[in-house]
Each structure stands twice: as C-alpha cells, then as structure tokens.
Design a protein around this nucleic acid. Structure first.
Length: 879
RNA sequence: AGGCGCGUGGCUCAGUGGUAGAGCGCCUCCUUGACACGGAGGAGGUCGGUGGUUCAAUUCCACCCGCGCCUACCA
C-alpha cells in the first residue's frame, strides 16, 4: 500500500519542467530502446522521414503523435518496438531553401572554394544577384543548413514525447542511406527494371530538372484561344485554335478527327504555317475532339502530352524551340530541321523571339500574327483571326514549381513500373489500410499510371547514380554501356570517384569515362526507408528480422508517392510488400476547414502550443482525431486535454495520499467499480489493436471522468477515511489504488508525461517498473483473484444513479453538493433496488443523507432513481 | 467528368435498424478536506434534401444539393 505525504506533492503540475525532466530520464534509461538481441515479438514501424527543410507545422505534431500512441501501446504490450526516425534532407526543397537562405545558386562549372564564407541573405538580401558557387560548396551549404533544421525537428519530437529510439536515427543523405539507395539502383539494373532513354520529359524550367508523373499537379490558369489561319498547299486554308501560339515555329503537323466532315478533304495534304511557312502534314486521329476549339489543331514539339503521343505514333520530326531554361532557342529556317517555303521571312519572324521566355515570346508573336503580311493563306487576312478568346484551363505544374512544365527531350533513367501494374495492384490488396478506403487511393493511382517512373534529376543535393559511361576513342560518350560501381565500394560519387578499371586521370578523356551528373529523385531514396532502417544487404540477418515492417504511418497526399514507390521497391527487390499495415492520417485544417498552406498564410507552428498547453494536451488533441479524418484545428480541444491532465494529477494525489492497512478488496461497490474498469480495459485494448486510438481514448476518458473521479472516488471517500471500518477502509484504498494504477497505464500512451509523473510517486517502486511506459499493459493480471460481484457493473451503476439523483435534487433546491439532507425518499426499479442494497452505506454517506428510504417501483429504467421527497438539513452539521 | 470521404444542438466531433451523445460555449447554482487549471444542475438538435426498403430509418438503398480530396480533362 502506497501512502504519500500530501505536503511533499506540489500544488500544480508544471508541464514544461516535467517534459524536460522525463525526456532526459527516458533517454537515459533507454525506455524507448529497441533490443537488437531481443527474442520476443517485434513491432516494426517505418516512420516517415520528414522533409527537414520544410517548416514545422501542427500537421507534423498531429500525425506523428498518432503513430507514437501505437508505438507506446505496443511497447506496453511487451513487443520489442523498432521505432526509428529519419530526416529526409536531400532534394529540391532543401536546394531551394539554401538558395533563398544564402542567396546563392549552384554553378557546377565553378571550382570548389575551400572555406567559402556565406552569410544568411536576410530580409532585403534578395535584391543582390545570387552568388554563384561550385557544386561542392553548394552541397556543403545544404548539409550545414539541414543539420540545423534537423535539430529543430528533433527538439520538437522530443518535447512532444515521441517514443522514438534515437539510436536508430538516420538521414537520407547520409553515407548509409546513399549506400542503400545506390545498391537499390544496382539491383534494379541487374534485374532489368531500369532503363535510360532520350525522350520528351516533363521539365521544370526554373529548377531545370525533369519531374515524375507523381510530382505533377494541375492548376487552373488563365489562357486564351488564339485562332490562327493556316494555309494549305495548293490553295485554301483553315483556322486552328491554340493556347500556345508561341509554339507555332515548333509546329510539325496538323490533326483533325477522322469523322469530321469539315476537314476531311484536308487529310493527307500539307498545311502551311503562318509566319514561318513551314509545310506540315495534316493527319487524322481519334484523339482529336471535334467539339473543342475549331476541331483542327496544330501539333508541336511539344505542347502537351498528346503532342508526344502523336510524335511517336506519326513519326513526326522534332522541332525543339523551348530550351531547358524556358527561353526560346535559336533555329534556322530553311535548314533540314526547320523547313520553310520562305526561309528569309521565317527567320526574320523568328529572330526577335530567340532568348525570350515562353510568356514574352507569346506576346511578341501575337503582334506579328496580327500583321497580314505573315499570312500563309494568300487572302490578305491576318493570321490571327479576331481577338484571343480568354479561357481558364488546367495546366500542368511541378508541385513545387512556379511556371508551367514544358516537354523537353533529355536523357533520363526510368524504373519500369507500367509492366508491373497488376503486381502492384495485388500488393496494395495485401496491405491492410487504415482506414480501409485509403486503399482505394493507392488502387486508383496505380490503375491510372501512364508513365514509367523517371528517376533522374538534374540537380545537385541528392544521391548520385553509381554510374559512369565510357568515352569512345573518338570522344563520344557511349550511354548504351553504363559502367556500374562495385557493390563493395558504395557509396560512390561518380563526379569524384573513378569507375572500376579506370584510373582517375581518364575522366572526360577519349577512351576514358564520364560521370553520370544527375542525382536521384528524392523518392528513389526515401522509398527505401524500411531498408535504410534495417540495413538490407549490409545487415541481411537484421533485415530478415525487421522486414517486411508491421506499420507504415503516413498522410494521404503522399500515397501516390511515398507509399507507392516504397511498394514498388519492395516488389522489385524482394517480391513482397514492405509492410502489413498502412495507417493513413488526416490533415489539420485551419479553423475554417481550409487546407493550411504557406501561400495562404494560415499555417500554425506547434511550439507555442506546447508552451501554452503542455505536450500532453497537444497530444490529446492529436489523438482525439480518428485516422484518416481531416480535422479543423480547434484550440478548445487543447484545453480539454490540459484539463484531463490536471485531473489525472489531482486524483493521483488524492488516491496516493489515502492510508489504510494492507487489505483485500472485498466490498461490492469496489468490486463492481473494478468490473466496469475491466470492461473499459478490454474495449481500449481492442480499439488500440486495430489502431483506433481515438475510440480507445474516448472510452478510457469517459470512464475515468464519469466512473472514477466523479463517481467512484466520491462514493468511497468516506469509507477510505473511516476509523470504524478498517476492513472496508482497506478495501476502498486498495481498489482506489488499483483503479489509479490501471488508469495511469491506460492513459500512458496518450499522455506520457503526466502519467509518468504520477506513476513515479509510488507505483514505479511498488510495481518494479520505473517507467510506466515499460509497465505491462493492464489486463487479466490486474483483475485476477477478485471475487465476482452480484450484478456485475450494474451494482456500481446503481450507486452512481443514486448519487446523480441526489445531486439533481440538491441543485434544484439551490443547495451545494456538500449540503446534508435531513431526509430523502427515492424510488427505483426492483432490480436496481436490489443492487442498491449492496452499496447503500457508501452511497448514502457520499450523498450526505441523514435519514433515507428507498422503495421499488415498476416501470423505472434500471440504474435511474427518482427523488420522491427531499429535505435539506439545517445549516451545516458536523460530518 | 469519374471515384472516395464528409454533411448530427452556437462550435469541434462521437455514435447507432428501435424514444438523439460528448466536450466546449451559454444559463443557474456551489469555494466541500484531490482538484476553482474545479464541482453540481439546466436549456439547446424534425441527425443536408427527396424518395424507397422495413412493424420501425439519423443509421440500409437510390437520386439530388453543399463541402473537401483524389484522378482525368491541357489543341
């Protein structure tokens, strides 16, 4: 029996101080440590490595807490929990942040400057032109800044009480992760799952890199149909509608629908473009929509994805006029690539466009098109018919980009995924999604795949391909015979390391080698998070124990990227699924139910919330939301969490300061309360096993509040202090302590700080578990040996119902709860009356009734009491 | 345009084939010995709309409306 001296306990709980103290204790004690040697059942979590260059967001707190509660519960269940934390630091977001933070740009042609000094650009620093730095200097800046960013994230995670095993921390740019990611490529290459090809690729002109289908999003943009009059060889003309007149010089064909009578006569002839007077074939295609525009359109290099399809199907030439920087390239009309019936005029028209951005070029060419001298049809009408007709239409953007994507022909590496669609769909069905409907997101995405996975990025801060190419004696790079790194030499940087069998001096020389300059798509590396954590080929035994993982938690917007690619890798490398369960968290919306985003300026940062309400309260808010449900941020819920935490503090103080001789639990009220508590334990356990933590929290909280603090504690208070009834007192105090001991453990995964604090006051020592987070999850062991009680929980309910009726009567009489009643007569159902007899003494004492009578009446609901007569006692007699 | 999710008291959200639930907010009352960072009581909803199935629908089905997301649409 634990008995504390009330004077030793502080008046209030100070979350700030306690959080710091317990965080340090947990780390010191190794409470969250995975046991490498442990033989017991494991529970392996594949934690999302956050992009550290992104800003801290309440959404982070929200979803990571939802994972943590599962980790903590599993640990208390006795599982050997593997809960790592990674940082996703490589990739464009970091490069962009470094560019802005230091006002620098990477120029790979520059030499490395050792000891380069850079200052944060500050607020007004953007006005100066960016400083060009070498690739190596740029990467150093990225590493330095991400190291700082990781510190901020880690501080938040620790403050929040995530039970991560920090010994398992990793970052996706580390040597270890590079090694795994390069191994991944080598394995895919050997199995024939990757290929490279020179092909039109969606290209961001600002970042100057290719992007994958998954990174592309549509944005509604203002545009305009420009009606351009084309000529036809042998006479006549027609009008196309285009939103991209600036691509006129890149026009390679004209297309119409086979059933469109208006243009049927044109098919097979050649059209003449205005201004440039290029003869281009007219063909028909089912892909043309006769209802759209004028039903006849120009095909360019490359206006959109359909242009790419036609280029392939029709064997059209390439007239690439948009460069990698989004500006128009020089072109010589009259040459082979750019035929023209009037080359001098064409070149005169094109010359002013060279070097202009797409947007500028559009403006310039529209002016030219208004001039009748550019007409291709010899009827003296200007090529531009009427004014452009404004429309809004969806345009593809890189999700992190600012200007529309262009299709540009480049050499890229791809992973074959289209041919594995069916296996990928099967894999999705083998994974249990929580909530289940999230599996549909994966299925829909996989079914709709159009392109293989482009993994080349023309960037700097990323994991390089472990690849070189031979240079022929004539000095040509032979991309068809890539040289792969030796597995044993990983990680390699082909820009500084030489390939197997070549001396470094042969770099970029005829007969020598040339490095692959591109780096991986970030997802190529982060899709290996389970393997990075397990060690994969570097630690095969360990990998075998940890993979496939048990749980992948993540949010729904990255199902098509992170979840998808991770499934791809597990399939292609080991022909398995990467995890058994995927738990998909929802989003935090702003109070108006709008998505939080930087551009809207409605993003909430979490630190001040932790300061104001405490980590347990912030966790409570996160855990009140069900998996997969988008939740509006609501500060009220934080207040509720803080109140719950306070209540736990106070009731723990009360329970542990009661004193009684060690005694068995014998009284019906006590046993009946414990009966109900046991039911709550069972419900919570079932819910948590199904990752339905919010239901568990709700059930536990409800019974804690209504059943324990408001009812049971009040009902036994008198007996717990009784001098006259030592047995009853012993039973009461023992039941109070058992109740508290169970509640602290039930709440521990949700509110780790306050529960640890209260646990430490006595149970830690008494139970031989110094941390509540390593104590056994409540179960049969706690309730074994207790006598079965007549009526089960209904006996407890009868006492609660009686107390509620008395409270109601007192309130209606304008009296306080503590006011004594001189006389009370109540009625209840016969069954409830019978049960009430067992708890009558406690109930009457708690209600402070001097003379009472209880009678039975048919027709009343079980558990409820009706007050028939009630008389307040005069004044306040001594208790 | 298709798919998915959501629509329950002022707010945020649970829930269920059988007379509607919680917390917050609001109103009234209470400083009692764990707790005023509290406690007791109360008011407040025809569960988005219309049909259908059923003895019975907020719950199941169909359609519609509104919101959100995903996918498609780029001439």
């Amino acid at each position: 029996m634990i008995t504390l001296d009330p004077a030793r306990l502080s008046q209030h709980f100070d979350p700030r101080e306690a959080e710091d103290r317990w965080d340090r204790a947990w780390e010191e004690w190794g409470v969250h440590r995975y046991d490498e040697e442990g033989q017991g059942e494991r529970f392996v979590i594949d934690t999302p490595p956050p992009t550290v260059s992104g800003s801290l967001h309440v959404g982070h707190v929200f979803s990571y807490t939802q994972t943590d509660v599962i980790a903590r519960h599993q640990r208390m269940r006795g599982r050997n929990v593997f809960y790592p934390m990674g940082w996703d630091d490589n990739g464009l977001p970091t490069e962009r942040r470094v560019q802005n933070y230091f006002n620098v740009r990477c120029d790979p042609s520059l030499p490395y400057e050792p000891g380069l000094k850079t200052e944060p650009a500050g607020e007004g620093g953007q006005k100066a032109p960016p400083r060009k730095v070498s690739r190596k200097n740029f990467i150093e800046l990225c590493l330095a800044l991400t190291a700082e960013d990781e510190k901020a994230f880690k501080a938040l995670w620790r403050r929040l009480g995530l039970s991560v095993d920090w010994a398992l921390e990793y970052s996706t740019i580390s040597d270890h992760a590079r090694c795994i990611a390069q191994m991944s490529f080598i394995d895919l290459f050997r199995k024939g799952h990757v290929y490279q090809v020179e092909a039109p690729t969606q290209w961001d002109v600002d970042f100057r890199t290719a992007v994958a289908q998954a990174e592309v999003e549509d944005r509604e943009q203002r545009g305009a149909y420009h009606h351009l009059r084309f000529g036809v060889e042998g006479g006549g003309g027609f009008v196309v509608a285009t939103t991209r007149p600036e691509l006129l010089a890149a026009c390679v064909a004209v297309a119409t629908h086979p059933s469109d009578a208006r243009y049927r006569g044109l098919v097979g002839k050649r059209a003449i473009t205005p201004l440039f007077r290029a003869p281009v074939p007219i063909f028909s295609s089912e892909l043309v929509d006769p209802e759209k525009g004028t039903g006849i359109l120009m095909v360019c290099t490359f206006g959109d994805a359909t242009d790419v399809v036609w280029w392939r199907e029709q064997g059209l030439p390439v007239r690439q006029i948009v460069g990698r920087d989004g500006r128009l390239l020089p072109a010589e009309f009259g040459s082979g690539a750019f035929p023209s019936l009037d080359a001098p005029a064409a070149n005169a028209s094109y010359a002013p466009l060279v070097g202009r951005t797409v947007k500028e070029a559009q403006k310039a060419i529209v002016d030219q098109l208004r001039d009748p001298t550019g007409a291709a049809a010899k009827d003296a009408q200007p090529p531009l018919q009427g004014d452009p007709q404004p429309i809004t239409h969806p345009v593809k953007f890189f999700e992190k980009g600012d200007r529309p994507l262009e299709f540009i022909t480049t050499r890229q590496w791809f992973v074959r995924i289209l041919e594995h669609k069916q296996e990928l769909l099967d894999a999705g069905r083998k994974i249990q999604w929580h909530p289940e409907f999230m599996g549909a997101r994966y299925r829909d995405w996989t079914q709709n795949l159009q392109l293989d996975w482009g993994i080349s990025r023309q960037r700097f801060f990323g994991v390089p391909f472990p690849v070189w190419y031979p240079i022929t004696a004539q000095g040509e790079t032979d991309f068809s015979r890539p040289i792969l790194a030796d597995q044993a030499s990983l990680p390699v940087d082909p820009m500084s390391d030489a390939p197997p069998g070549y001396p470094p001096s042969q770099r970029d020389r005829p007969g020598g080698f040339r490095a692959e300059a591109d780096v991986y798509d970030t997802w190529f590396t982060s899709s290996m998070s389970p393997q990075i954590a397990s060690g994969w080929t570097l630690r095969p035994e360990r990998h075998r124990r940890l993979f496939p993982n048990d749980l992948r938690p993540q949010s729904h917007e990255i199902i098509r990227t992170w979840a998808f690619y991770t499934i791809v890798k597990a399939l292609l490398h080991e022909n398995t699924v990467p995890w058994r369960h995927a738990a998909i968290s929802g989003w935090v919306l702003d109070p108006d139910r709008k998505k939080m985003s930087k551009s809207k300026g409605n993003v909430l940062t979490p630190m001040h919330l932790l300061d104001e309400y405490g980590a347990d309260a912030v966790r409570y808010w996160s855990l009140s939301a069900r998996l997969g449900v988008d939740t509006a941020f609501d500060e009220k819920v934080l207040k509720v969490g803080r109140r719950l935490s306070t209540k736990l503090f106070n009731v723990s103080k009360f329970v542990l300061t009661q004193s009684a001789p060690e005694a068995p639990i014998t009284r019906d009220l006590d046993l009946s309360f414990l009966f109900r508590l046991r039911e709550t334990v069972e419900q919570a356990s079932t819910s948590l096993d199904a990752f339905e933590y919010s239901t568990a929290l709700d059930d536990v909280e409800r019974f804690f509040w209504n059943g324990f603090t408001d009812s049971y504690v009040e009902l036994v208070k008198a007996r717990a202090r009784s001098e006259a009834d030592p047995e009853g007192r012993g039973s009461a105090v023992a039941a109070l302590q058992l109740g508290l001991k169970v509640f602290l453990r039930l709440f521990a995964p949700f509110l780790p700080y306050i529960t640890e604090e209260a646990w430490s006051w006595g149970f830690a020592q008494a139970e031989g578990a110094r941390s509540v987070h390593r104590a056994a999850w409540p179960g049969v062991a706690d309730f074994g040996g207790l006598r079965a009680v007549e009526g089960g929980g209904a006996t407890f309910d009868a006492a609660v119902g009686f107390l509620a009726a008395v409270h109601r009567a007192k309130s209606q009489a304008g009296a306080s709860v503590g006011r004594h009643l001189a006389r009370l007569r109540v009625a209840t159902s016969p069954a409830t009356l019978r049960r009430f007899e067992c708890v009558r003494a406690d109930a009457v004492a708690a209600a402070r009734v001097e003379n009472h009578a209880a009678e039975s009446r048919e027709g009343l609901a079980d558990g409820s009491f009706e007050v028939l007569e009630c008389e307040l006692a005069e004044g306040r007699p001594e208790a």
